[in-house]
């Protein structure tokens, strides 16, 4: 693991933002850091940059506690985007390149390179507040990428993007990861990003829920079979399934039964059962969505979790994460 978060704890008054959060991020993958709003993602990302102090825990980069020298090789795109509004785009990108330790000529070259690369050619002399919203997003990304970071940390990079923008952002992240960069991004839209990253860590209430390859998590311990019998809108046929074969997790409105199979289950026997009830329209192994993985692990849906967080924030008057 290139980046390790180990036992991170952070309290704001009575609110616990991080509660022993531990996970690792390998190099060369686009790694999603997921969880509902208020789970502690922003606090953890800020802690990587020393912007938020930790009550306990340690963050290591390549086996060593993260220090100033290491942080200079990191690129950061905070959730609340921020650039100098009155500064020209090129000056700004060049300035951040120099702050990260690049010398004058290298900073100039890299700034022009990323401005062109992100489709901002011809805007170098434009003040940032005169750029369109979309172009400001690109400018923010240019600032995070200009010094060719070895670790790229992006807080909610997909929020506010249209579908084409999401594709482009995701292509940039994949391309950086392929170049050997460790890429960590956060999102509270679990299902939106499940196709955009190879591995994820899902957190809730400041603790890790699950982490691993997206494909493994979606498959789960027990494979899922989706079966629909023609004309059976309630999935009545599945009542005959014994628990030694599998259990029906849920029934879709079109009568498709979602069945979690046991290890020993024989899928062909289930097909026979279904065919006995009528013609089988649909019979396929399916992956669970990440929000379902979250619900199974925590017992709460992402929406419920976010509503509870919002209510707690109102009740205590204590803001954490992005608000603090």
């Amino acid at each position: 693991m290139e980046l390790e978060l180990d036992g991170l704890c952070r309290r704001y008054g009575t609110v616990t933002a991080l509660d022993g959060l531990t996970f690792g991020v390998p190099a060369g993958q686009v790694f999603g850091f997921l969880g509902p709003n208020g789970a502690g993602k922003t606090t953890a990302m800020r802690a990587i940059f020393g912007v938020t102090a930790l009550d306990a825990g340690e963050i290591r980069w390549r086996g060593k506690p993260v220090g100033e020298a290491a942080r200079r090789t990191f690129g950061y795109m905070p959730e609340e985007r921020g650039l100098y509004p009155a500064m020209a785009l090129f000056d700004q990108v060049e300035y951040f390149a120099q702050l990260h330790g690049m010398d004058g000529p290298a900073a100039k070259k890299a700034a022009w390179y990323w401005i062109d690369r992100l489709g901002l050619s011809g805007r170098g002399r434009t003040r940032v507040d005169a750029l369109s919203h979309g172009n400001q997003q690109r400018a923010q990304l240019a600032v995070a990428l200009v010094h060719d970071p070895e670790l790229l940390v992006l807080d909610e990079p997909f929020s506010g993007l249209d579908p084409a923008g999401i594709d482009d952002m995701s292509a940039i992240l994949a391309e950086r990861a392929a170049a050997g960069v460790t890429v960590l991004f956060s999102s509270h839209q679990l299902d939106l990003v499940e196709g955009l990253c190879e591995a994820v860590a899902i957190i809730y209430q400041g603790r890790l829920v699950v982490s691993g390859l997206v494909a493994d998590l979606r498959r789960g311990d027990r494979p899922r079979l989706a079966v629909r019998v023609a004309g059976d809108r309630t999935g009545a046929w599945s009542a005959v399934l014994s628990s030694s074969v599998g259990t029906v997790d849920s029934m879709r409105s079109d009568g498709t039964a979602e069945i979690s199979l046991t290890r020993t289950a024989d899928s062909q026997a289930i097909l026979d059962l279904a065919r006995a009830a009528g013609p089988v329209e649909h019979f396929a192994y399916e992956d669970r969505s990440l929000s379902e993985v979250f619900r199974q692990a925590t017992g709460a849906s992402v929406g419920q979790a976010e509503a509870e967080h919002a209510a707690a924030a109102r009740a205590t008057g204590v803001a954490t994460g992005a608000e603090l």
Partner: peptide, 29 residues
């Protein structure tokens, strides 16, 4: 947001590596 990645990504990344090679030797670690 259209980040225009149509040109091949690998070439782009390798040139980004080269142009900041100097900074890396003096910086990281």
């Amino acid at each position: 947001m259209n980040l225009s990645l149509s040109d091949d990504g690998q070439r782009g990344s390798s040139s980004a590596r080269t142009l900041s090679a100097g900074a890396e030797t003096s910086g990281e670690g």
